[in-house]
Amino acid sequence: MIISVEGLHKKYGQLEVLKGIDCTVTQSEVLCIIGPSGSGKSTFLRCLNFLETFNVGTVTICGHDLTKSKTNLNLVRRDVGMVFQSFNVFPHKTVIENIMLAPMKVTKVSKAEARTRGMALLEKVGLTDKADVYPRTLSGGQMQRVAIARALAMEPKVMLFDEPTSALDPETVGEVLGVMKKLAEEGMTMVVVTHEMGFAREVSDRVMFMDGGVVVEEGTPAELFGAPQHERTKAFLSKMI
């Protein structure tokens, strides 16, 4: 079990955003999370690497128990890569420097080694020719691929994606989904919050539908898209397609 979540509750002040989430993800599994805006998808994802704190429940990820106060979050985060909707590439660093930074600072990899590994990752996301440019000159799709490569540079055991293509022009969505699909095929364990139903259907092993802070329904893509059990799931899916 790579991720195991039990009874996760999260409040912002009085507003309860997560109302008891249970979820497990196994090695090499791809889990897609879908659901309407405000349903708590991002919040849930961000609890998995403790970018958000939570009130009640347990989260165990890659063998780290996030509820234990002596768990070193920086160690947890080495094992858990995250890709954001807004890319968050470092504007003052070239593409290759973006990728080299964390390995050099966190795991003390040598500069040369970090560069070699970074170039290999750029090759993987198809951006070798952009290694030495600043992000300012890149398209959204290219920036997101840099962000993916940057996360992979820490050799994570799990990758979390929060709507990685929602901020992209339609033309560049495909190139990012392509990289993610390749990653899934290589056996990466992935949790993907997405509105790309095509991707969820094709690539994921399991789909989880969230609404109002709870998991309404989950199952294989065939089950969830083919024969949704709940009214809310049906209503949501009919709007999406």
Binding site: R77, G81, M82, F84, L101, R150
Partner: peptide, 10 residues
């Protein structure tokens, strides 16, 4: 940007 840095384990 801060979150991206933290998420990388820095």
């Amino acid at each position: 940007l801060r979150e991206a840095g933290r998420a990388l384990g820095m």
